[in-house]
Nucleic acid binder design. Structure first.
Lengths: 126, 126, 126, 126
DNA sequence: GTGGTCTAGACCACA
DNA sequence: GTGGTCTAGACCACT
């Protein structure tokens, strides 16, 4: 298991994104226990302090809850998860449209680009 | 003229994005003189060192050219501009699709989201 | 029966506070037998080890006494209970005043706040 | 300048409380620059990482704002400061009343205790 | 064994 | 010089 697929983005942020994604998509369900700090550190090859920070921030985002001596768990608050998903979606779209508009691309060109991208992706892993 | 519309993104990067966008969209044409470092620093309220860096990096990207004692100018190499535009577009799409897929959104939902976003945006500032 | 009304505060501490309060207020009288570790663990949903610790610390505070094979009992030393009550009161006041002063509240404002709080509380669960 | 007046409470939390108090009481005003991470680390005798965390959390609480390369500043959002003051006051009162009630003290006794405490304090630093 | 805090020190990014 | 990230490793608190 390796990380750093997006250079520049801090490791702890990448890990948050990944875990949050897994939670939002339901791969990790409400109430599930996340790997222990040390375990996940070994698995990812990242220092335990960094993992600690990941869990702390996820707790502050209300998508995980840590209990000393027990472990860290996915929040049971499913509403919050839905809310977060919408929120992140809006944010991604916002930035994408802004960046593409700055380059002078129209909505049609953006959608065309997406379709093309999908197609290539589909062809490439056959 | 304010910056920092995208917190987190470094100021110099935001300025590069903005200028590159203006060049690519033809608002600033090949051969045009860019504002002097000092002038642009005052206009944006940003430290002159930072503007220096913006121009330096734009020169390395081959979209601007500094001539000692004269100033910094938009490259005359229009091919390079086209190439850059495509390159940035691909990159933006790549990240966007990755992020949205991580949240479990399908291509259809992405396109739907874009349309909706455009609509809301269109209504508000037209 | 739930715990964790004051997050952050460790569970064993919350349980000590609660039991000590019950003893001091006379709900549990000198000589009374406290619930067995197992029984109390089930009742509170807390790990038996944690209950063990609660009783151990209460013994060290001289407000409970364990007799092997018989159970844990409220101390018969009523003087100690009075003393403890005064001691805890002083401590609570000390921290409260310090915290409120740090926020710039005067003695008058503290007392006003207390009255107001009581009123709201009183209205809601009467 | 020493810290650790309240054992058990983590150092970073104590520093947040202190700085937040200073901000709320207006000792540090909106827009003021806070000491640099390293400077404050030396002044308090605490590791720079810990100070870093203090500032980060204050940023998350919306009472400070960090700008890379420039420093950390008190938020200009005075509304937020008022809100925080009220919020903390309520919280302190809530816990105080709960703790004192658990010991069987009435509202009158609490207020009496506060007055007495104040008096002793006043007498002691004459 | 699990989370949480803290240190010392390195290195990076920004202004 | 200023904030930010990361590591290695120690030690503590809780279950």
């Amino acid at each position: 298991m390796t990380i750093d697929f997006q250079p520049d983005k801090p490791i702890y942020q990448q890990l948050i994104d990944r875990l949050a994604g897994e939670i939002i998509r339901g791969i990790r369900k409400p109430g599930d226990k996340l790997p222990s700090v040390r375990e996940y550190a070994v698995k990812t090859g990242v220092n335990a302090n960094t993992i600690q920070r990941v869990y702390r921030e996820m707790e502050q985002m209300n998508i995980a809850q840590s209990r000393r001596g027990q472990g860290t768990f996915v929040t049971e608050n499913t509403e919050r998860l839905q809310e977060l998903r919408e929120q992140m979606k809006e944010e991604y779209i916002e930035y994408f449209v802004q960046d593409m508009s700055d380059l002078g691309f129209s909505l049609e060109e953006m959608m065309e680009g997406l379709k093309l991208h999908q197609k290539e992706k589909g062809d490439s892993h056959d």
